[in-house]
């Protein structure tokens, strides 16, 4: 595909801090290469803003190779922008045309309060993981990796669930701000493997309780989360968590 450069109109959400009301600011950027990533385009804007002695746009980023889950921009009405199974850092400017107007907003959910500009506080996800997204093992000598046989099918499904990078696009995309896709991926990756077995029932109950406590909305199977997930996490995980939770709750003694 031919390389090209473009001029763009950006409408970016600016908010000083979590108590500020915030609002949109319009910027024009010129000479943007089609081969830049979306974050590099914001870098170009920010360098100019710094030279102009104004506050650069705050945004989350880390690995810039699509695996850390830091970047979190709601671009033109969709989390991580228009490309399928792509994080914002892997979204490239060839997705846009010269003269386009691009609206950039932070994830919007009560459970993800805005910290500044496009940065939101996703600590709710960390607290959900802390409530059960782990296995307890006594450390000692490293165990041989293949000493517990695992069916290929289950290993593949657990791996697919473990691909979740916890970016929060599912919550951002969901009209209800439900976190079910994230939590179900984290429940599934352990429920499918023998190592997750001993804590399986308490894990799902604790994680769902924490999810509800964090104030995420409830799932109505709209499916926007799966469609927008940069890692293609399947709705099958939500069904699995529903099963896990129902069995664990109904059979528990407390």
């Amino acid at each position: 595909m031919e390389h090209y450069s473009m001029n763009l109109n950006l409408r970016i959400w600016r908010q000083k801090n979590k108590n500020d009301k915030g609002g949109f600011a319009d910027y024009k950027v010129e000479g943007i290469s089609s081969e830049m990533s979306f974050l590099e385009m914001i870098d170009v804007l920010n360098e100019r803003l710094i030279l102009e002695n104004t506050e650069p746009v705050a945004f989350d980023h880390d690995c810039r190779e699509g695996i850390c889950g830091s970047c979190s921009m709601y671009i033109n009405g969709r989390p991580h922008g228009p490309w399928h199974e792509t994080t914002t850092c892997q979204l490239h400017m060839r997705a846009f045309k010269d003269g386009d107007t691009i609206v950039v907003e932070p994830w919007r959910a009560k459970s993800f309060p805005v910290v500044k500009d496009l940065v939101v506080d996703r600590a709710a996800f960390d607290r959900i993981i802390q409530s059960g997204g782990y296995i307890s093992v006594n450390t000692g000598n490293a165990v041989d990796a293949n000493c517990i046989p695992i069916e290929k099918d289950k290993a593949d499904k657990a791996f697919a669930a473990a691909a979740c990078i916890g970016c929060g696009a599912c919550v951002a995309a969901c009209p209800n701000t439900s976190a079910m896709l994230f939590v179900s991926a984290k429940v599934s990756q352990l429920a499918l493997l023998p190592q997750g077995g001993p804590e399986r029932k308490t894990r799902v109950r604790n994680m769902v309780a924490q999810m509800d406590k964090e104030g995420f909305g409830s799932c109505t199977n709209i499916g926007a989360c799966e469609a927008e997930c940069p890692k293609g996490i399947s709705l099958e995980n939500i069904a699995r968590m529903n099963r896990e939770f129902t069995i664990a709750s109904l059979l528990s003694e407390d």
Binding site: R11, G22, V103, E105, R108, K110, S111, F216, G217, E228
Partner: peptide
């Protein structure tokens, strides 16, 4: 659960 609404939503895509 979403006190501040999005300015632009392209829901038909998902």
């Amino acid at each position: 659960k979403r006190p501040v609404a999005y300015a632009k939503v392209d829901a038909k895509e998902n």
